[in-house]
């Protein structure tokens, strides 16, 4: 079993590595095409700003590689947003795995932006997002959101219901940070690894 984490300039890559290590998995951190293509599982983490991150991906050609991958790919947070068509964050063209545009939260009284902290997940079905996940509190930190679409497998409600997790064919994605969501988050990573 080979798990690859995609390496690029901005991202909380290290947190994801540590989470996998706590699960007994030693991931490979790389931006090499062959290494990525030969992996059993690919994780595409993200913390950052959409346009500068897309630029880093473009410089490495990863923006073209990722949508062509055949094995299970897990996008996390910004990783999930960049797998959509477009983001309102600095009007950024993204990779287009999920046919939807990422929108900015509009702050309402008492509901601050960014959406930062622990919130409940509502899974739409059983599977990798809910299997053996007892406590559904997950850690979110984001100012932009993916609206609820056909590929939404879990929602979260903050200002409005939005996509907490997506799945389409071999592409999986979470808006929250499973690597930072305690034991329950680690369980979701484990579910993905065991797919």
């Amino acid at each position: 079993m080979k798990t690859v984490i995609i390496k690029y300039n901005a991202g909380n890559t290290q947190s994801v590595i540590y989470a996998l290590e706590r699960l007994g998995i030693t991931p490979v951190l790389t931006s090499n095409f062959e290494e990525i293509q030969s992996a059993d599982k690919v994780i595409f983490p993200g913390v950052g700003e959409a346009s500068s991150t897309m630029r880093h991906l473009q410089e490495l050609g990863l923006d073209r590689l990722i949508p062509t991958l055949q094995q299970p790919v897990l996008g996390i947070c910004l990783g999930m947003q960049l797998m959509c068509d477009h983001s309102e964050e600095n009007d950024t063209q993204c990779m287009g795995v999920f046919n939807i545009s990422v929108k900015k939260f509009r702050s309402k009284k008492g509901e601050k932006v960014p959406h930062m902290g622990w919130n409940n997940l509502t899974p739409k079905n059983s599977g990798w997002i809910s299997q053996n996940v007892v406590d559904r509190h997950m850690y979110f930190v984001h100012s932009y959101y993916v609206p609820v679409i056909e590929e939404t497998v879990a929602t979260c409600d903050y200002i409005l219901p939005f996509s907490a997790a997506l799945q389409k064919n071999n592409f999986y994605a979470t808006q929250f940070h499973p690597e930072k969501s305690g034991k329950q988050g680690e369980q979701i990573i484990k579910n993905f690894i065991e797919l």
Binding site: N12, T13, V47, H177, K180
Partner: peptide
């Protein structure tokens, strides 16, 4: 740590931040 982690102290420019994120800081 499997929870979010913020690191501060002595950050004075953009170059100071990436090494902290790579060391495992989330914010």
């Amino acid at each position: 740590l499997n929870i979010p982690f913020t690191v501060g102290g002595g950050i004075s420019n953009v170059e100071d931040v990436a090494p902290l994120l790579y060391a495992g800081a989330d914010k």
